[in-house]
Design a protein around this nucleic acid. Sequence first.
DNA 1: CTGAAAGCGCTTACAG
DNA 2: CTGAAAGCGCTTACAG
Lengths: 346, 346
Amino acid sequence: MKITIKEIAKEANVSIATVSMVINKKDQNITEVTRNRVLEVVKKYNYIPNAMAGSLVTQRTHIIGLVLPDITNPFFPGIARGAEDKANEKGYSIIFCNTDDKLEVQEKYIESLTKKMADGIIIAHSSSSEKMPEILERCKVPIILIDRDFDSESICGKVLVNNSKGAHMAVSYLVEQGYKKISYLSGPLKTRTAYERLEGYKKALWDNEIQFDEKLVKFGEYKIEWGQKGVKELLEEQEDFDAIFCGNDLIAIGAMKELKKKGYRIPEDIGVMGYDDIYIASLVEPSLTTVRQPNYQMGYKAMELLEERLKKAPGSYNAPSEMKTITLDTEIIVRNSVKTNKKVKP
Amino acid sequence: MKITIKEIAKEANVSIATVSMVINKKDQNITEVTRNRVLEVVKKYNYIPNAMAGSLVTQRTHIIGLVLPDITNPFFPGIARGAEDKANEKGYSIIFCNTDDKLEVQEKYIESLTKKMADGIIIAHSSSSEKMPEILERCKVPIILIDRDFDSESICGKVLVNNSKGAHMAVSYLVEQGYKKISYLSGPLKTRTAYERLEGYKKALWDNEIQFDEKLVKFGEYKIEWGQKGVKELLEEQEDFDAIFCGNDLIAIGAMKELKKKGYRIPEDIGVMGYDDIYIASLVEPSLTTVRQPNYQMGYKAMELLEERLKKAPGSYNAPSEMKTITLDTEIIVRNSVKTNKKVKP
DNA sequence: CTGAAAGCGCTTACAG
DNA sequence: CTGAAAGCGCTTACAG
């Protein structure tokens, strides 16, 4: 069936050791002539070495496990793509797994990855659980955490997003545009994102010497409907607001819909900021200004971190002192072509 | 470092052959006592066998390559998820690759998968190329094609979508609702999808004894802007139409936007059908009726096909006679809560 | 019912 | 500069 190193060696009249060296470019000590002879035979038979056999002796598979809740959730493809790009660059392959945020499933995948001798694991850990599954604790390979923070001895790196800073940027941007009474239509407070963004919102107000008014902060769901409802509530309660910082893009879309329905112009009358910069937002509300999550970067950086770790000797993997955390910043995407008339004077 | 079968065997006072048999459940011939002794030691040391070592002798890695243009394109996560679910069910892992529709990249990935001894490959082949890359032709493992058709000896299965039938269903649905002058706002005709959907559109008209009118068919891009522009054109040209079948959801969104702007009510005055059923559509136009692509099914079925093939002996893989094609049907997703007043009488 | 041995396809000291 | 040999961690006939 498939041709092996043995056949190549025989055909080229050299030992398999020589073939191996030529193929792996460890051939400083091989004559030009021999090398070429080998290379020719390799080409002639389209010989592709069996990496698994090699892995068995090198103890490196160049396989990385990427454990995500669900690739179908628009949040994750960017991460996957980033990780895959970096992996490819460095000669790694990525096995991906969908856990649906279920701990048993996650455990099963970790075990499968362990069996298949993955060199490392990048994981967006299930938020639902308070404790790291035992199997991860026991896991012998380097683990990089993404997006969701978590403390554990066995983690060798983290790549997180600065939600608080993102919110701070968003609110500061609104202030810069001249808005002063900024409402926050948040997602559910029990989510870490909502909480962190609330912190950023408060800090931005503080930094700009704007009084925090809790009546302007409302908690709902990360859905379009909540954006509509939230705006309705604000209007009904006759709150005095001139801008809305929305917990995510869906809320922003809902808010804009409702505002437009009531006859407000955006951003002239009322400013609106989204968060997450999902594809949909730019299609539905082409003028929506949003905070973009660095998803691609997150995946890319995670893989980068992992690769650096893997360059080291297997022994020194999980020294806790070696833990590295990267916190990525978000970015403001301004799409408003219309100028607000609330611009502050320079 | 990691414990091996040798240690387990020694600790349990049996040979490694026995341990292997117990672990792989080929233990019909092993005494209850021996088995338990082995199992105990396995548990004690949390022994997880090295699958790669096994693969070397069984010639099966239980790794499948999934080659896609770009996981970031909303069309693909569903496919990936479907494939992964089935793979997981059957004990396979999936390595995923993004080719960006570039042939060189695709070749590189195929080679990498070959090196890593993937048992099979599921591929959405780059549309840009006319010929199958040589490396795929040479590829020794079973290959399943998804979404994009292509002829090649080395293909052992295909999972495609019946675009023509999908369009037929969509147009028939509109007819059923009482609409009679149905326009088709298509994507670019050079794409296979646009062409096939056009065929379905024509056939549906024919089957319902409606005269085909080429002035009602317009080709543009798969974008919101084209939906708006297309409607504008139809109105300006004073075409007589009472429904629009749109080439995809984005076009449908644009069309609905424009129609509403001009004061038409949907679906009372004018019916609109989308195609693809992307997430965005249901958010933006909650009442839009669409044709749903069976993406998840496509991935799932592809993996199923592959797994069946892999159960057979390695020798019989690529017999062309064994080629199986699965054509999946689309599904109409009706979201209109409002009833059209054009309903045909029963 | 269980074990000794061969072998999967490589890499890597080590000798020469 | 190149080859013989050991070994990576398993599975699988084959003996007994």
